[in-house]
Design a protein around this nucleic acid. Sequence first.
DNA 1: ACTGCCGGGTG
DNA 2: CACCCGGCAGT
Length: 307
Amino acid sequence: MAATVLTSLSTSPMVLHPSSAPTVPEPAARAWKEVLSASYSSSTSGNWSWDASDQSVPSTPSPPLSNDNNKNFLLSSQGDDVSEDVTESTHFMFEDPIPRKRKNSMKVMFKCLWKNCEKVLSTSSGIQRHVRTVHLGRNSDSDYSDGEEDFYYSEIEVNMDSLTEGLSSLTPTSPTTAGPPPVFPPPFTDVPHSEHINMNGSQSHAPTLLSQSAPSTLCHIRTDHAYQGPVTHVRTVNIGEKRQPAASTHTTVNKNHALITPAPKPTPGTRKPRGEAKKCRKVYGMEKRDMWCTACRWKKACQRFTD
DNA sequence: ACTGCCGGGTG
DNA sequence: CACCCGGCAGT
């Protein structure tokens, strides 16, 4: 039976596909590919032709299309980088190497979510500045941002035809920005379908202290020990944060939001964020172990290169 | 795979 | 105590 099928296929490769496809597409496809490679006697790149053909067709016929937005609302506990996961999970499925951008003329706009404000801007920076100046009452000229504006606008897609203008936040704009490196290199840019803040209306509690996870406020520039070699790189410490000496030195920024986040760390065990800075083991190597500090030799917390 | 180091051993 | 190591967790 199989032999007859194969022979018939080899003669006319186009015959097969429509009949027994729906239940088990996979073997059929494989057979087809084999037939193709056989008949065309092109040993290599049999499958690449497939990709090419697939690419030519604009609408992928694959049934398991992305199921809209899987709305995970677990972000209320700790916002921060949930959003990134969302974008990841939506298109991590096979195929679709291009991260499903706007197909025809979808444009990303940024809409202010403030009480009665309906302002829509085309750039994230614009909406941030709007929120910052108009609603938060910040100083207008300083473009300092602590990320709080993120909670007052959402990203929406507008189906406007024409003008495929450069998408603001994704393209690095012009290289003219010579000043300090962008204080706000946003990890946000995501939120596939708004749904970032609820609490619309009823702004009972003062909105200024709602900043949960303001990433940029925690950026520190620390010079590490630079023990061997000039390690010149800026390091950003995120919410893990080092453990301050508990003397409640609230630095200078206002990050007093203990009333919203129930569990500051998702893992209560907390095994210490793993300090950085090379320790004796790394610095001296396994050989020359006798140059390590004693703690390192005993596999304890390093004493020489503390964090 | 590698590193840092906690917890638990041994003498 | 000093000393060592298994094994975990983070990179």
